[in-house]
Amino acid sequence: MSGKSIRISRRLLVATALAAPVLQSRVARASGEVIVRTPGGVYDDIMRRHVYDPFTRETGITVRPVAATTAKLFAMFRANNVELDLIDTGNGQLITLERMGALAPIAYDSWRWSKPEDITPELRKRTQVANFVYCTVLAYNKETFANGHPNSWAEFWDAGRFPGPRMLADMAAGSPNLEFALLADSVPKNQIYPIDIDRALRSLSRIRPHIRRFWDTGALSAQMLSDREVVLGSIWNGRLQTLIDRNAPLAYTWNEHMIQVQALGIFKDAANVAGAQRLIDFMMQPHVQAGYAKELIYGPTNEKAFSLLSPEEIARMPGGERSRQTGFYQDVSWWEDNRDRVNRAWSRWVMR
């Protein structure tokens, strides 16, 4: 063997030795841990009680939740440096990731704990499956409106009949409330999409003098209602229900609420695709969904879970039969197709 060959062989041995711990670590994690992107905070505590710890006891696979922004998810895939297995996020972000070719198909045919046919059909997609639904509702202060409250977005827009400072969602919250602006402008629920952006902004211009602030986080919307900075506003139902359960003088109407979806997807290049598939299967079980939906105050997507909840619990959740009759699903495909266009129009409008 030549001296050059010996040097190359030595470099190869050193490189292999250095790479071995990384490869061994990846293989070990692939078999023993699932890393999940989650919203974080209290959400992780609830999911650990009802999903992660029971899953670990059942399978021996640990679950590690981590926080990651949408931008980070996109960057991971583009850089071919996927650090997560399962993605727990809004279904709009998953649509974008699917279009990028980042997601693996959901292995419905290998489910053994759950039955795919029990999942609400429109929430069961090729590369994502919804784990719960939440909604944006019209909230009001009961003391301010003791003699009658708005029961529609047209009445929310009627500041003469229902005076007081209001709030609506900002673009930074995910999407501004263009749907509610169209409902206030007499557009029927089944004709909201495709959204007429100019018409929605004209409608918003009429109520804008009464908008104290456009909120960009769920925490801010809850604080504004709690502090009575506003007496009317759009807000996610879970955030509002937490305040109501703490005896805040607040209430809401289910009429014309917008149903939104939290869903699960799997990076196709994840270290533990198989473990992530098993975790989804486990999470979709009726009794598991009933447990975390009850605490989150969001609606299960396994139809069999509703039978495990009391009528009082179901009354607090979106997604059931009554909810589908009085509300509407946000069209996230339209939003992902038009987000940049809305963002430009919103930025111009909000600066006027």
Rank of each mutant, 00 (worst) to 15 (best):
E313I: 02
P286L: 07
L250C: 09
A271M: 11
S333H: 12
P209F: 09
L220F: 05
T69A: 14
P54L: 07
Q223M: 11
A19N: 14
R199P: 04
H210E: 14
W349I: 06
W254L: 01
I61G: 03
C135P: 00
W349M: 05
L73P: 06
T96A: 15
A19H: 12
V82F: 03
E179A: 05
T144P: 09
A305Y: 04
V332L: 05
K4M: 12
L201E: 02
A104L: 11
V230S: 01
D245M: 12
M167Q: 14
A17V: 15
N81E: 09
S333C: 05
R99A: 10
I235P: 01
R213H: 12
I266T: 08
V133Q: 00
E229R: 01
G291N: 10
A271Y: 12
W346A: 04
G319N: 02
S347T: 15
L204T: 01
S333D: 13
V34R: 05
I207D: 07
S152N: 11
S9N: 14
S333I: 11
D196K: 04
S186F: 06
T59I: 06
K142W: 08
W111V: 02
T16E: 10
E303M: 13
P249A: 14
P21C: 11
A71Y: 01
A146C: 10
E336V: 13
I35F: 09
A28E: 15
R341Q: 13
P286D: 10
E313Q: 15
A67W: 12
I297Q: 12
M171N: 10
E83I: 05
D196P: 02
R344N: 08
Q241R: 15
K4S: 12
A248R: 13
Q260V: 13
V51C: 05
L178R: 01
N247S: 15
H149L: 04
I211W: 09
V273H: 05
E117D: 15
P188C: 05
V230H: 00
A274F: 00
R166H: 12
H210D: 14
G160H: 10
R239D: 10
P209Y: 10
D53L: 12
W153N: 02
D269S: 14
F214N: 03
Y108Q: 01
D118G: 01
T38A: 02
S2D: 13
L84I: 15
N141S: 09
V350A: 07
D53P: 00
V133G: 00
L94V: 04
P150E: 09
A290W: 09
E295H: 06
R202N: 13
Q24Y: 13
N338R: 08
M258Y: 00
E313C: 01
S2K: 08
A173N: 09
F55L: 06
G101I: 03
S221H: 03
V27C: 07
L279Y: 05
L240I: 07
L308S: 03
K115Q: 14
P21T: 10
V288F: 02
G299E: 01
S307M: 12
F306N: 00
R124E: 09
R228C: 02
R199H: 05
N247P: 07
E336P: 01
H257I: 00
Y252H: 11
R126C: 05
G265R: 06
E179P: 00
Q260E: 13
A173E: 06
L13D: 08
R64F: 00
N302K: 00
E179V: 03
G160D: 13
S175M: 07
N247A: 15
P65H: 05
E33R: 14
M283F: 06
Y329A: 08
